[in-house]
Design a protein around this nucleic acid. Sequence first.
RNA 1: CGGGGCGUAGUAUACCGGUAGUAUACCUGCUUUGGGAGCAGGCGGACCGAGUUCGAUUCUCGGCGCCCCGACCA
Length: 418
Amino acid sequence: MLQSRLFTKTRKELPADEASKNAQLLIRAGYVHKEMAGAYSFLPLGLRVLERIKGIVREEMNGIGGQEIIMTALQRKELWERTNRWDDKQVDIWFKSQLKSGGDVGFGWSHEEPITDMMKSFIGSYRDLPVYVYQFQTKLRNELRAKSGLMRGREFVMKDLYSYSANEEEHRAFYEAVTAAYMRVFERIGLGDKTFFTFASGGAFTEFSHEFQTLTDAGEDVIYLHRGKKIAVNKEVLSEKVLDELGLKQSELEEVRAAEVGNIFSFGGKKSEELGLMFRDEKGEQKPAILGSYGIGITRAMGVLAELFADERGIVWPKEVAPYDVHLLLLPSDDEAVEKEASALYERLQNEGIHVLYDERKGVSAGEKFADADLIGIPVRAVISEKSMKAGGIEVKGRTEEKAVVMDAKKLLSLLKK
RNA sequence: CGGGGCGUAGUAUACCGGUAGUAUACCUGCUUUGGGAGCAGGCGGACCGAGUUCGAUUCUCGGCGCCCCGACCA
């Protein structure tokens, strides 16, 4: 991508209407645009990060047998009435509207009800089970108070996966497979070290649930962490009974703030019964499918990444989610050979399948290009200038490194392909 | 929803009961060119409504919006 064609601009000033670090950085660097409180548009750079996170999640979901779909955002009142979740007294974050032709519609804040209803069209026998379906969806939640930038929005992207199993064993096996896949996801996007499997409340509709909590002061949860065992207990459910069951001692636990980046629930057969998702087992008996529901907050994960991976100069994206592999900077020069060299390298890297943001902007000082590169936070910076050419190559520097190393294109390529 | 703070140019800010200054961004020209360059010129602004007042961007009330703390977070 030629940076001169990138319509977004970086900003020096902090936005006055944002206090959270993630929103400040992402706005200053041109990743997102705030539309209103709790609603952010994703700009070209931001979209690339989002798509990379989604790509990793997609691979892991497909890897455990998930099939991707997209449900509608519009939802029928009737389905949610059947499970007693339409009433604002039960669920207070509904966005609702009326059809011109009459009747109410809801905007999806979750999709258990419609997807379970839909699956009735496809599940009738134990032979049809298990089924694992997932989607990346924009969820709409009428939060009383949106806050912390991308961390708690009224509109956000979530990956939600639903499992339909014939019996508890089958369900439990998949639940564990999801747990492992989720840890791989967080590992791959760079949050592995700081993300912990956490015991939590299932709320009003499920008995138990687990969360994936990433340690950050920007999070809104307090968890009690056992670092040795790499597990935690959400403050919500902390009790002697729970600790006993988990074999944990209060004295070994650390109280820390964390952000919930993922959660997994077991609904049992209750929701299937309420919505009529029944199947015949081997003996011809009618049974409700066992439902599991598994979420990853895609946009929230992006916010957490910006919170965690940044320094005083800007963002420091983990390699796997960075919008580009390398930021190529052409510094100002009167010598045409310098630009030729840089453009040739740009072509060459692209031909090798490397994703390059090429800052070939004219009339932009070296200092400004450096500052922009630091703010945008692409992991590797490659500089071509009169000076680098005299030194015999390209000045290459990792985002967090202080000093650049001069190397030739071949070496740069092998470094980027690692 | 309770409490607190704040709405001035694209952005960030200042002052003021007598129509607003600065920085940055943007446009023009010249000079610069390795860590957000310099000079000169230019464009551009008081959230909405009501009230008080000779006069309101400024004071009062209401609305709307944004941020923070708390509550909530299936």
